[in-house]
């Protein structure tokens, strides 16, 4: 397309000499694509060296024994699949990702609608305030959360004591630790959903809502029959995207619990870190990470489909 429209006017000058025209055009196209390739070389080198190569290297590493001296085939995978700890990791990763993403999408959806009702500079102000959790580096804000809930003298426990509830050792109990991990993730990630939905809501024509209001639609009906269909595509894209990011999350779990108590709150990333970096078993750690790949790949394919469809609609 780009060639077609840009080359024509220039080629027009050499029209009287058809033979030269053809070869000049040919040479031009060749030079252009050479320049284009050269411009892509840095990107290509970066991705090849630090994304594609490590990925295949990781597959290779995962087939070695602990000291990386001997090929042991799929033994690492077999071992993980039969290990109870790893079953817990799979369970916790799925529980964490699904619950957290559902809550983020739900609260983000509500907040976007609520925000959409407000107009003018007020909206900008509120949007800025509600975006704050997303802006602070998650590792740093999670440290603040940790200090807020950890131990029996923590700030949350102090509040509970004011209303007569005994202090709870939140991060030493599996259920509470899971609850807080999801809570921190929802706190951090909701603004992203809110922003994405809000931007899409703004592109929905107001007339649709006005027509519905005249027809006597209730608020719920407006959401169900206008907002939801209009937002369907962006909801699926953001949800899938967030599933990937949440599923592969490291910061929050590592800082809040690092897998404690008794490995019950490990997700793939933190377990891979413990096995691969802390205990120095690089092959096993690679295997843990690679278990994420099939799931992520499926999500990625669906995202790509959604994005391509959206782009086509936009054109």
């Amino acid at each position: 397309m780009a060639e077609g429209t840009t080359d024509v006017p220039i080629a027009g000058y050499s029209a009287p000499r058809p033979r030269a025209h053809g070869s000049a055009l040919h040479r031009m196209a060749r030079r252009r694509s050479t320049t284009a390739l050269l411009m892509c070389v840095p990107l290509f080198a970066l991705l090849a060296g630090f994304v594609v190569y490590p990925f295949f290297y990781s597959i290779y590493l995962s087939t070695l024994n602990r000291d990386m001296t001997r090929f042991i085939g799929l033994f690492n995978y077999q071992y993980l699949l039969s290990s109870n700890t790893f079953h817990l990791v799979i369970f916790q990763s799925c529980l964490f990702a699904i619950t957290a993403v559902f809550l983020k999408a739900l609260i983000g959806f509500i907040l976007a609608h609520v925000m959409h009702n407000i107009t003018g500079p007020d909206q900008k102000l509120w949007r800025g305030v509600l975006l704050l959790p997303w802006v602070i580096p998650p590792a740093l804000s999670t440290l603040g959360w940790w200090w807020m809930i950890e131990g029996s003298y923590s700030a949350v426990n102090w509040l509970l004591q004011q209303v007569g509830i005994h202090p709870i050792a939140f991060l030493s109990s599996t259920a509470w630790a899971r609850f807080w991990i999801i809570m921190v993730n929802v706190w951090f990630g909701t603004p992203f959903f809110m922003i994405m939905y809000l931007a899409t809501l703004k592109s929905v024509p107001d007339q649709l809502y006005e027509a519905a209001a005249i027809d006597g639609a209730t608020g719920w009906q407006k959401i169900r029959f206008i907002s939801f269909p209009m937002l369907k595509n962006i909801i699926s894209i953001t949800t899938l995207f967030s599933l990937i990011v949440t599923f592969a999350n490291f910061d929050i779990v590592q800082i809040l619990t690092a897998g404690a108590p008794a490995n019950t709150t490990h997700v793939f990333a933190t377990y891979a870190f413990q096995v691969g970096i802390n205990s120095g078993n690089i092959p096993m750690g690679s295997a843990v990470s690679l278990f994420m790949f099939p799931i992520l790949a499926v999500f990625a394919i669906f995202i790509l489909r959604g994005v391509t469809r959206r782009t086509r609609e936009a054109i």
Binding site: F55, F273, L304, V307
Partner: peptide, 22 residues
């Protein structure tokens, strides 16, 4: 271009161990 988009979806926790070795 599609490949670039797909690498955006690769989370850091997938590759940090081979990168450590690399």
């Amino acid at each position: 271009a599609t490949g670039v988009f797909l690498t955006y979806l690769v989370p850091e926790s997938l590759l940090f161990i081979p990168l450590f070795k690399e």
